Computed example of a mutant assay.
Amino acid sequence: MSSNDAPNSSNPSMIHGHAAYVAGAVKETIGSYTSTDMQNAGASDKEAAVEEMRAAKQLSDQQGGEVSKNPTLGEVEQTIGSVTGCEGMEEEGAKRQS
């Protein structure tokens, strides 16, 4: 993540974390065809996104842990999580659907 994209450490966002993870996965995939530096940057972006999602989950758990129900958003989130290999995103999507 670039410094402009870095989340506020006192206010981590699950949505931003998911978006950053997907962007990192895309960058890593493109990098696997173009350059090792880009591939490594994508992997690093994914790691940072996972840390942000963990922080957001921890904050959510401290605040009661309720996930808003939205079957459409949940299905999209679960599908994107499956395609990108983000298990947390898949789980959050499943929770939104139930």
Rank of each mutant, 00 (worst) to 15 (best):
Y33K: 10
I80Q: 03
G24F: 05
E66T: 12
S3V: 11
E90C: 04
A41L: 12
N11P: 00
M1F: 13
I30W: 01
S68K: 06
A56K: 01
K69G: 02
V67T: 15
G85S: 05
S10A: 14
A23S: 15
Y33H: 07
V67Q: 03
T34K: 07
Y21N: 02
N4T: 08
N70G: 04
T72Y: 07
E51D: 13
Q63V: 04
S44V: 13
S98T: 10
G24P: 03
S3R: 10
A55G: 09
S9T: 09
S13C: 09
K95E: 15
G64P: 07
E77H: 03
G88E: 12
T29D: 05
A43K: 14
A56S: 02
H16S: 08
S60I: 02
Q62C: 01
Q62Y: 12
S13M: 04
L59R: 11
I30C: 12
E91R: 06
K95W: 10
S98W: 02
V50F: 03
G17W: 00
S9C: 00
M53Y: 01
A23L: 13
D5Q: 11
V67N: 04
S68P: 01
R96Y: 05
Q78W: 08
E28F: 13
V67W: 12
T36Q: 14
S2M: 05
G42S: 12
K27F: 05
A94E: 12
S3M: 09
K95H: 12
D37V: 13
V67E: 08
I80G: 05
V22I: 15
A20D: 05
K69H: 15
S35M: 09
G24L: 06
A23E: 07
A43M: 05
S44P: 03
Y33V: 14
I15G: 01
M89P: 02
S68H: 06
P7F: 15
P71M: 11
N11K: 15
S13G: 06
V76K: 06
G74N: 07
E90I: 15
Q58C: 00
D61M: 15
Y21H: 09
E47R: 08
E91C: 00
N70C: 04
P7Q: 06
N40L: 07
G88W: 02
V76Q: 05
G17T: 00
S10N: 08
P12K: 01
A56T: 00
N40G: 12
Y33M: 10
Q78T: 04
D61E: 15
S13K: 01
D5P: 01
S32R: 08
M14H: 01
E52V: 03
I30R: 00
G81Y: 04
G81W: 02
S9M: 14
A48Y: 08
H18N: 06
L73I: 13
N70V: 11
V67F: 13
A56L: 09
H16T: 03
D5S: 13
Q39D: 07
K46E: 06
A6V: 13
E47G: 10
